[in-house]
Design a binder for these strands. Structure first.
Length: 581
RNA sequence: GCACCCGUAGCUCAGCUGGAUAGAGCGCUGCCCUCCGAAGGCAGAGGUCGGGGGUUCGAAUCUCUCCGGGUGCACCA
């Protein structure tokens, strides 16, 4: 049950009845939300202020009519007008009890919604070049994309998690050449790695594997024959490497889409360009040289251009390079047409900060190939600066100066990595301090939240000790005398629980999974605070040895907290431990 | 030169898409363990929301402009 959605609907209905002349568009702008200051009430709406002006009425007059309407509603304790025309509701306690009941009934599904209506959404994330292990720069996008995917799935979308393998460019030739060097090394040659080649140790096993498969037969083989063989082997190996890295963070994609499959005669790029030409979206023309570049690097020539400016981009974009091959963007247009033809009308791409200049053309491409039928949201993840005790930090084991994803996970663990990366908006640069993340104090939000979850379990343990005869099964909790939950402190906690469905929905609409992390931290804080109240006032303890019925009711509340924390952590991909080590 | 992102307490950051007296953690000053896990909690001090205009009942939020920081800018991927 979503209290806000419930009252939002009721208020909209009331407004329609009271002010039929207000159109549906106006009604739709009405917001029902918790007031910033809890002393104002449980719910607040701007309904009167939204409607008053267009109708030529006084906001307080409109508000008075609505107040009159809700005055005798049994679910409402009080309604009053405040400030410029806010209407504040105080909700009757039974509604809060219903929230607890629905948490118990829905369990892991509490907060799940039908917002997406089962529509397919394609979320592309990571898409790191398959030329080596993942480094820390990729990690933020990986966690963000994976969490967003979980959030959207929880909100009723049919989510497809996709990884685009850039396996067609010149960097793959370099990769193959680097592997060939390692192969020669494996055969006993002493090698030197020239600049421009990939120096990482991770190619050594590839060289070994090539030796095991081919013996020394590759040495005599013509390059044109040899390179494709090596490419296949090394790409497969790199992909396994990347999958293994992602698995460290429990990230798994549904689709790995190879760019190579778009190329070649009769391929998607060819078909897409033909289609674009047919639609008049391509022309031959010249571009202005970019202002920031040195003019001597600029070669003025006639190019095959995509009319990106027709779809909101800054300039038209080249599709064919001077050597006659396709540009990366040409492949990307074909790729996104492919996504659209696979049935995706909603697409989200998660990209690194260095791709911010790519956003407009990607959106232009999506609009063009779908004839404006598909939408594309690009989420940019800003840079992560690694710190240790406030000092910039470099770790390197196997890949030059880069800190790898594996290094980070090994250092701080998957839970902390995921939570900390989500405990920040994606579009702000962040510092990631290893020392802080490993700390087991309230300064560390991961720990703080997991501690709250563990604490719910420890309360049950205490209860079992004090009441050996009492039944704490889900069925017993469901049958608990929930009306005993009545003190202001308890109901405050329930209010936080009641905000969960609304938080999820808002986060899904905005594509902002970080809100889940902030919410669960807030819930943990509310829970810790209530727990501490029991220190000063024993009557507020969860376990009351002289009152088994109250204890059972309070345990139902604890169980609801446990459930909602678990649900939020599930979206974040962070484990919910029953005890801390 | 252009585009995108950021600028909120001493520090690190939220602020629910335009709402009421702008919030949290750290740090600082105090308080709370014979008591469900103190691995916690409570209270206090601390702000011109980068500056200035505009839109309206109402702006940290939208818009314009300037300042500061980051990222990117044909034929790479």
């Amino acid at each position: 049950m979503d209290v806000f959605a419930l009252f939002s609907a009721r208020i909209a209905n009331a407004m329609q009845v009271l002010f039929p002349e207000a159109g549906a568009d106006l009604i739709a702008r009405i917001v029902v939300e918790p007031p910033r200051d809890a002393s104002h009430g449980d719910l607040s709406t701007n309904a009167a202020m939204i409607v008053a002006k267009p109708l030529g009425k006084n906001p307080r007059e409109v508000a008075a009519a609505l107040v009159e309407h809700f005055k005798h509603d049994a679910d409402v304790i009080s309604v009053e007008v405040a400030g410029p025309g806010f209407i504040n509701f105080r909700i009757a306690t039974p509604i809060w009890h219903q929230v607890l009941k629905s948490i118990a009934e829905q369990g892991a599904d509490f907060g799940r919604s039908t917002l997406g209506g089962g529509e397919a959404v394609n979320i592309e994330y990571v898409s790191a070049n398959p030329t080596g292990p993942m480094h820390v720069g990729h990690t933020r996008g990986a966690v963000f994309g994976d969490t967003l995917a979980a959030l959207m799935a929880f909100s009723g979308y049919e989510v497809s998690r996709e990884y685009y393998i850039n396996d067609a460019g010149s960097q793959i030739d370099t990769l193959a050449n680097s592997s060939f060097l390692r192969y020669r090394e494996a055969l006993g040659e002493s090698i030197e790695i020239p600049s421009g080649f990939y120096p990482g140790d991770y190619l050594i096993p590839v060289g070994e594997a090539l030796k095991a498969e081919f013996g020394d037969s590759l040495l005599a083989m013509p390059e044109a024959e040899r390179t494709p063989l090596i490419k296949d082997r090394v790409l497969a190996a790199m992909l396994e490497l990347i999958k293994a890295d992602l698995a460290r963070l429990n990230i798994h994609h549904d689709v790995f889409f190879s760019e190579r499959t778009l190329h070649g005669p009769g391929g998607d790029i060819e078909l897409t360009l033909a289609w674009l030409r047919e639609m008049g979206m391509i022309y031959e023309g010249r571009l202005e040289p970019p202002k920031g570049k040195a003019p001597e690097e600029w070669e003025d020539r006639e190019q095959t251009l995509f009319r990106a400016t027709d779809y909101g981009d800054d300039i038209d974009r080249p599709l064919i390079k001077s050597d006659g091959s396709y540009t990366y963007f040409a492949a990307d247009i074909a790729y996104h047409r492919n996504k659209f033809l696979r049935g995706f009308k909603h697409m989200i791409n998660v990209l690194g900060a260095d791709h911010s200049g790519y956003v407009k053309r990607l959106q232009a491409a999506t609009k063009a190939v779908s004839l404006n039928a598909a939408d594309m949201d690009v989420r940019i993840c800003q840079l992560v600066r690694l710190l240790k005790n406030g000092e910039p930090f470099k770790m390197s084991k196997r890949s030059g100066d880069l800190v790898t994803l594996a290094d980070v996970v090994e250092e701080v663990g998957a839970d902390a990595t995921r939570f900390m990366l989500m405990y920040r908006r994606n579009d702000a640069a962040m510092d990631f301090d290893f020392a802080l993340v490993k700390e087991q104090t309230k300064d560390n939000p991961v720990f703080y939240v997991q501690y709250a979850h563990a604490r719910t379990h420890s309360i049950f343990k205490t209860a079992a000790r004090d009441f050996p005869a009492l039944d704490f099964s889900p069925a017993a909790l469901a049958a608990a005398d929930i009306e005993r939950i009545a003190t202001p402190a308890e109901l405050d906690l329930v209010r936080v629980l009641a905000a969960w469905p609304r938080t999820v929905t808002a986060a899904a609409i905005a594509h902002e999974p970080h809100r889940v992390a902030f919410y669960v931290h807030e819930l943990a804080a509310a829970f810790h605070a209530f727990w501490a109240k029991g220190k000063d006032d024993p009557s507020l303890r969860f376990v009351n040895s002289d009152d088994p019925k109250l204890t059972l009711a309070r345990l139902a509340l604890v169980d609801a907290v446990r459930q909602v924390i678990a649900n939020a952590l599930a979206i974040l991909g962070v484990t919910a431990p029953e005890e801390l080590s």
